[in-house]
Simulated assay, not measured.
Amino acid sequence: MQRIAIAAGLIGFMAIGQLHASTTPVIDTTRPTAPQIERIQAELAGHKTYSELKPADHAQVVNALSRIQEKLGSEGVLSGLHPAAQVDVVNDQELINTLLAKARADSRLVCRRETLVGTNRPQTICMTVAERAAARERSMDTMRKTGISRPEIIP
C-alpha cells in the first residue's frame, strides 16, 4: 500500500514539474534580454520548436522582439526605462510569451494506437496537436457539407 502512495506522490510531483515547465516565460525581462532574443530568433528561423506558428503571429513576434530590443537598447535593463516604456516592454513580453507558448503546445507530437477502418491491426499514428485539430475540423466541415448531423439509430 505504501508503494502505491509513493508512486502516486511521484507522479504528482512529475505533473507539477511539467506544469511549471509549461508556464515558464519564453522571454523574461528580469534577465539579460539579448541572449533570449537571439535564442528565440534562432528557434523561429529553425521552424522546429514553433512550427505551428501562423504567419501573422510570426510577424507579431518578430515585431515585438524588435520593439523590445529598440526600447532596452544595449543596456538591456528594464528598471532604467521610463515607466511608460516599461509598460510597453512588458506588454510586448506578454504577447511573445502567449503566442510562442501556444505555438509550442500546438507543435507537440502526440502518438496514439489506432485501429484503422478495414483492419484489425492497430497502428501507431503520430501527429502534432495542431494537425489533429485541423483533421478534426476538416471532418466536421465534411459532415456539415454532406448534411450529416449525427448518426441515426434504426430501431
Rank of each mutant, 00 (worst) to 15 (best):
L65E: 07
G9P: 00
N63I: 13
I153P: 00
R67H: 13
E152T: 12
L109D: 15
A7F: 10
T29I: 06
A105H: 10
T128R: 12
H47C: 09
I16A: 05
A130H: 11
N120D: 14
I16D: 00
N91F: 00
N97M: 07
A64C: 10
I68E: 04
F13E: 03
V62S: 15
P35I: 08
L116R: 11
A8I: 08
A34I: 03
V26G: 01
R67Y: 11
R121K: 13
M1N: 02
E75L: 14
N63A: 15
Q41C: 06
S51Y: 01
D28A: 00
Q60M: 12
E43S: 12
Q2N: 03
V90D: 01
S149P: 01
M127N: 14
V117A: 12
M140P: 00
I16H: 00
F13G: 01
D92R: 06
A85G: 05
I96T: 06
L44F: 11
Q18E: 01
I27A: 05
N97A: 03
L72G: 03
E75M: 13
E52C: 02
K102H: 09
P25R: 04
T30Y: 04
S139T: 13
I154P: 02
D92A: 08
K102C: 04
N120W: 06
V26P: 00
A84D: 14
A5I: 04
T24I: 02
A7Q: 11
I11L: 14
A103H: 06
E94H: 10
E38H: 07
A7V: 07
D57W: 04
G147L: 09
A59V: 14
H58R: 15
M127Q: 15
K102D: 09
K48C: 06
S107D: 04
T49Q: 11
A85W: 04
L19G: 00
L99N: 01
L99G: 00
V26T: 06
L100K: 03
A64H: 04
Q60A: 14
Q41G: 03
H20D: 02
E152K: 14
V26A: 00
V26R: 03
T29P: 02
D28E: 08
A56D: 12
A59H: 14
K71H: 07
E43G: 01
N63M: 14
N91S: 08
V77I: 15
V117D: 08
G12K: 02
A5C: 03
S51T: 05
H47R: 13
L99R: 04
K71S: 10
M143N: 13
T33N: 11
R150A: 15
K145N: 10
G76Y: 08
I40S: 04
I6S: 07
E114G: 04
K145F: 05
A7I: 10
V90S: 05
S22D: 00
L72W: 02
A34F: 05
R113Y: 10
I37M: 10
M143D: 14
A5N: 08
V90M: 10
T142Q: 11
R67Q: 15
Q69H: 12
S107W: 03
